[in-house]
Design a protein around this nucleic acid. Structure first.
Lengths: 141, 141
DNA sequence: CTCCTTTTTGATAACGAATATCAATATAGT
DNA sequence: ACTATATTGATATTCGTTATCAAAAAGGAG
């Protein structure tokens, strides 16, 4: 059974890239996080384990993770975040505009109507991004 | 009947701000555009009519247009664009990942299910952003 | 292991979009 | 016309991200 490290290794091999300790560490740290992770958070945790790792390597590796299909990049609120993405069903996001809390949800019918809209305009759907902005229960008080 | 200039004037007056020639010009240019406009495009057209206008004023004014509800800011592909937004129904976007062509569409049922999802998680929906990425008819050839 | 080639690394410079600063200018109200 | 306040344009600054580059590391071949 393939795990994320195997997928990453395969991707790297495919492009004659190397599975280095730095790349392994960054992937490890990334996988320990959940939800949407800002690169600064990853940076802090990576440096806890290896203070010599440079910020450039982190950016380069995150890019590789995106290209290999393990992570997805988002730019919701001017801050780039990365999200784990492996065998995960399509899902959308609900974001609180007050506290930035993020909830993931999915709605099969929405998917269906997205396809419908694409067909109407002769587009081949490749991916989608739906984000709902609102105020969560706690912040409404 | 209120037009955009009146709305802008009202907004400015409300905050003790002034309806200056620069602001009027930028709004004029913005309104002549259609769809999603990059700030550089607006800059070029504004400078055609008044080469003395500074970039800072342009950014400041675009921010005011957003705050006054006349424009909406998007950050689709790392490039910030502004979209005219006046008495416009909710709509979503369909973007070609090859040529960047953008199509607007709306789908009432999608809206309905968005609300549904919000209720499920005790969120009060404030706005949404749905973007479908695909390949348009021309680019499929 | 040793040699050689290619990739990777970390430090740092560079970039670019957006914002802050500030003195000079324009505006609105008296 | 006068005064107080807002606005402007030029420019410096910020900050996230990317490019550069010499040194280090990794993978093969012998």
């Amino acid at each position: 059974m393939l795990d994320e490290h195997d997928i990453f290794k395969d991707y790297l091999k495919q492009y004659n890239l190397r599975y280095t300790p730095q790349r392994k560490l960054i992937l490890d740290v990334f996988l320990q996080q959940s939800g949407h992770v800002h690169i600064d958070d990853i940076h802090i945790r990576v440096r806890d384990q290896d203070p010599t790792i440079g910020i450039a390597t982190l950016y380069r590796t995150m890019k590789l993770l995106v290209e290999s299909g393990l992570a997805e990049m988002h730019t919701f609120n001017e801050k780039t975040t990365y999200e784990r993405l492996f065998q995960v069903r399509h899902h959308d996001h609900l974001i609180c505009i007050v506290c930035d809390k993020t909830v993931e949800f999915e709605h099969p019918l929405i998917e269906k109507y997205q396809l419908e809209a694409c067909e109407r305009y002769d587009f081949t759907l490749k991916s989608h991004r739906m984000t709902l902005f609102g105020i969560c229960k706690e912040c409404q008080k």
